[in-house]
Design a protein around this nucleic acid. Structure first.
Length: 168
DNA sequence: TAACATTCCGCGC
DNA sequence: GCGCGGAATGTTA
């Protein structure tokens, strides 16, 4: 497992990579994990550098309200089948767009599982890149956010502003 | 079984 | 309209 700290305008995020790809992202403020690598072979190193570069670039673009050019491989192996379905569906929501929990449930052919979708969003190990902040409650109310509603509001506001700039 | 980042309905203001 | 209770709901550890 390799750990990297990513500096951004909004603070320092921490990314954790497994041998399969990006496995987790921590928000700034969660206890800072020292960066470093364990058990990496020589062939890992170039791959890791690439993953780290892709992750940093994607993070920066999303924090600016833009669509990332390319994502690193995402390691979903810790998720259940249902969670992987939810997370994949979230990846298809573009910046500046939103869906409700029940719309996501319908999209993965589990109508009625809105609450379970919420639970899966909360279990999302890769926030920001997997845009769990774009899922709202019915009536476009804010709903919840494990990392704090301030983050959710800020991310949505940034994306909305960037989207309206794109029209002008 | 208990715990949820939900939703819907019925009520009273 | 808004807020509050209560119930139904699918998934997870």
């Amino acid at each position: 497992m390799h750990t990297a700290n990513l500096r951004t305008k909004h603070g320092t995020f921490t990314a954790l990579f497994s041998e399969r790809g990006l496995a987790r992202i921590e928000f700034p403020g969660s206890e800072s994990i020292p960066s470093g690598t364990q058990n990496s072979t020589e062939t890992d190193r170039t791959q890791l550098r690439k993953w780290r570069r892709l992750t940093a670039a994607a993070l920066k673009r999303i924090l600016a309200g833009e669509q990332p050019i390319e994502l690193p491989p995402l390691d979903f192996s810790r998720g259940t089948d249902f969670q992987r379905r939810v997370w994949s569906a979230l990846l298809r929501i573009g910046p500046g767009k939103t869906k409700t929990y029940s719309e996501v449930a319908a999209a993965i052919r589990r109508p009625g599982a809105a609450r379970a979708v919420g639970a899966a969003c909360g279990a999302n190990p890769i926030p920001i890149l997997i845009p769990c902040h774009r899922v709202l409650a019915a009536g476009r109310r804010l709903g919840g956010f494990t990392a704090g509603l301030a983050w959710k509001r800020r991310l949505l506001a940034t994306e909305e502003a960037a989207a309206s700039d794109a029209l002008a």
